[in-house]
Amino acid sequence: MIRFKEELYKWIFAVLALASLVFLVGIIITLFKESIPIFSHYSFFHLLFGTQWYPTFEPPEFGMFTLIFASVVVTLGSMLFCVPIGVGSALYIHEIASEKQRAFLKPIIEILAGIPSIIYGFFGMVIVAPLLQNVLDIPIGLCAFTASLVLGIMATPTVASLAEDALSFVPRSFREASLALGANRWQTLTKVIVPAAGSGISTAIILGMSRAVGETMTVLMVAGGAAVIPKSIFDPVRPMTSTIAAEMGEAVMGSTHFSALFAIGLILFLITLIINIIAEVISRRFRLKLGLGR
C-alpha cells in the first residue's frame, strides 16, 4: 500500500514535469500549423527573401527580408552599446569594487534587469528620441539608431549580471597564482581571469542578444515602424517582433495576413532557438573547462 502510494506520487510528479515539454512542443506545432496557409500560397524563398511587405495591398506582398534585416540591424546595434558597457560593468564589480560597493551594485544591477521592457520603450519614446532628434539633428527621432540605443541600455544589466556570474566561477587560485608571479591586477584580469571566464562571458553576451532579438515592446515603440530597407541607421525600421505586435490587431483571423504573422513568429522562434542552443553549447564547454560538472 505504502509502496503503491510512493509510486503514484512519483508518477504524478513525472507527468507534471512534462509540462514544459508539452508547452514547447505546443508552441512549435501552433506556429507551424498557423503558418501553413501562407507557405502554401507563397514559396518559402519568396517569403524569406522578398523585400516587399505590403500585407493589406491587393494583391498583398509578404516579403519578410526587410523585417528580418531590421531585427538584425537593431540587435547588432544594441550589442555595440551593451557589450562593452555590460562586460565593463561586470569587470568593475568583480575586480575593482570594494566589498561594500559590490553589496550595493550587484542587487542594483539585478533589480534593473527586472525593469519591464515597456518602461524602456516609454522612456525611449518620450525622452531619448526627442533628445537625439535635437542633438543629432535628424528628421525622425524614432529610428534604428534610437532603437539600438534603448535596446542596448535595456540589455546592459542582463549582460552585466550574467557576465559577473561567469567571472565569479573562476577559481580564486587562478588569481592568486597570477598575482604571486608578480602580475598586477590589470594583467591578472585580462590575461588570466577574463580568458578563463571567456566562454561564460560569451554565453552572457549571446543570451543578451537573444533577449534583444525577441524584445517586442521597446522596438515597437521606438524603432519607427517603416517596413522598408533603411538607407542609414537614422531611418525608421520595422523589426519582426514589432510587426507581429502592431499588425495582429488588424489582421483578420484565418486570413493570409494572420498566417504570415505566425510565419514571422516561427522564424523568430527558430532564430532564438539557434542562438540559445549556441549559448548552451558554449556554456557547457565553459563548465567543463573549469571542472564545474554538468
Binding site: F23, G26, I27, G214, T241, A245, L261, F262, F269, L273
Partner: peptide
C-alpha cells in the same frame, strides 16, 4: 525543454496564447 522555453521571445508566447 525548460532551457529552450526560457529563451522563447515573449511575443511568441502571445501568438501561442492567441492560437
Amino acid at each position: 525543454s525548460i532551457n529552450n522555453l526560457a529563451g522563447v521571445p515573449s511575443i511568441v508566447f502571445g501568438l501561442f496564447g492567441l492560437a
